[in-house]
């Protein structure tokens, strides 16, 4: 008897049958003409010869897009529309669409021209045998500045979170339903979904698709956006590196700081006691004490973290089972 857990136990050597694709389009601030996008996605999906459904999540008061979607619907197009009363963010929009979706495979696509959708069969092909396909826009047609931004961001992602995908800014992704079942998205984590999925043990594959020539517009963002991206990246970095072994990191850092502080303070105290060098005009003394205090605090925080993990180690599974036989 073969038991597969949550249906993910197909093994890696057998072919998977895709029963239905759920296309989720989170409509955010940046979007192109919706009917045009809709038609493009629809004709691309038709070409796959697989049943599909389309879900558009309007994340906020984008009245024009919402009206256009409703018009499409009255004209008899089969599309599910979800409207948020205010902007909750792309991750929340994706989760909202995911909750009403019924397909065993989810396809995420942005509400603007990013990738030539005629490359969808290629994406579908490489999805076979993996759990998630991340699209890399290649060859690129957009401006040098945009490419530079992307490269810089990915350099940081690679060095902090590991080399999982080389274009996580691309919104076109195809993955099995289980991925979002196991990784609830919030905040701005949707961008890092490949990184999180890889960590969860899913097989990630990357495929090149031509960048849409319509994605040419030069894009710069307000400073706050760049800052937010950095904080997101740090969040993911922390989630990945230190949630399992907090004391390994904090303990080492804390001990290093503490030892430095003790050496500095000890040097000054020895001078005071044996060589009568006064402490009162030595600001270094304060630095030494500060380092001691800081080191102990870092260590203590690590210890609290470790205690929490230790206590809940039995509830937090460190491993993901693919399959159990008998």
């Amino acid at each position: 008897m073969e038991v597969s857990l949550n249906g993910k136990g197909m093994g890696n050597d057998e072919k998977r049958i895709v029963r239905q694709i759920s296309l989720i389009i989170p409509i955010t601030e940046r979007h192109d003409d919706i009917p045009e996008i809709y038609q493009e996605y629809k004709s691309a999906l038709r070409g796959l010869n697989t049943p599909f459904e389309m879900i558009a999540v309007v994340d906020g008061t984008f009245d024009r897009a919402y009206q256009q979607l409703k018009e499409l619907k009255t004209r008899g197009e089969s599309i599910t529309i979800i409207k948020h009363a205010r902007t909750f963010g792309e991750s929340t929009a994706i989760m909202a669409g995911f909750r009403v979706s019924t397909g065993d495979v989810i396809l995420l696509a942005p509400p603007y021209h990013q990738v030539e959708m005629s490359d969808l069969p290629k994406i579908m092909e490489s999805f076979d045998g993996s759990d998630m396909v991340v699209v890399r826009r290649w060859p690129r047609t957009d401006s040098r500045l945009n490419q530079f931004q992307t490269n810089l961001f990915h350099y940081l992602v690679r060095s902090l979170a590991g080399n999982v995908a080389s274009d996580i800014g691309c919104g076109v992704r195809m993955f099995r339903r289980e991925v979002l079942d196991e990784i609830p998205l919030y905040g701005d984590l949707h961008r890092f979904l490949p990184v999180l999925a890889f960590r969860q043990g899913f097989k990630i594959r990357e495929v090149d698709a031509r960048q849409s020539p319509k994605e040419k517009r030069l894009r710069t963002y307000p400073l706050g956006t760049y800052l937010r991206r950095m904080i997101d990246l740090l969040t993911v970095f922390f989630l990945i590196k230190f949630t399992k072994k907090p004391l390994r990191f904090f303990g080492l850092t804390g001990t290093a700081v503490l030892v430095t502080g003790l050496v500095v303070t000890g040097y000054l105290v020895v001078g005071r006691i044996f060589f009568r060098v006064g402490l009162s005009d030595r600001p270094l003394f304060l630095v030494g004490i500060l380092l001691v205090v800081l080191g102990l605090q870092i260590f203590a925080i690590g210890l609290i973290g470790e205690l929490i993990i230790f206590i809940h180690a039995r509830d937090v599974k460190e491993y993901q089972i693919e399959q159990i036989i008998n």
Partner: peptide, 9 residues
């Protein structure tokens, strides 16, 4: 009984 992990843990 055989338990298979998704990846090496």
């Amino acid at each position: 009984r055989v338990i298979r992990f998704r990846k090496n843990y």
